[in-house]
Amino acid sequence: MKKALEQKLGLVDMLEIKCPYCGDRSQNEFSYGGDATVKRPELNSEVNDLEWDSFVYYRDNPRGKHLELWHHISGCRQWFKVHRNTATHEIIQTLEMQEDL
C-alpha cells in the first residue's frame, strides 16, 4: 500500500538500465523485448507441434532472476540482454546479444 502510494507520488527511484554500448540510461529510453532464454528450433530440423507451441507461445513467469531482451529504442537502437530480478527490479548484469551468462 505504501509502495503504491510512493509510486503514485513519483517518490520511487527511477529505474536505470546499463546499455552495453551507451552506459547507464533511464528506463524511458528502453523497450522490453521478451524472454531471452527462448531458443528458436534449429533451421530445417523436424519440429513437432508441442515444440513449436513452446517456442511461439509458452513462457515461464519466474519470480526472481530472469534473462530478458531489451531494446534501447530511443538511444543506440541496439538489442541486448538484461539479467534482472523480477521481484526486486535489481539489474544484475547486461550483456551484448552474442554474450552469454
Binding site: 533511464s26 530511443s74 538511444g75
Partner: peptide, 10 residues
Amino acid sequence: CANSVYHGIT
C-alpha cells in the same frame, strides 16, 4: 552527443 527522449519524443 546522445540520443534520448524529451517528454516522450525521441
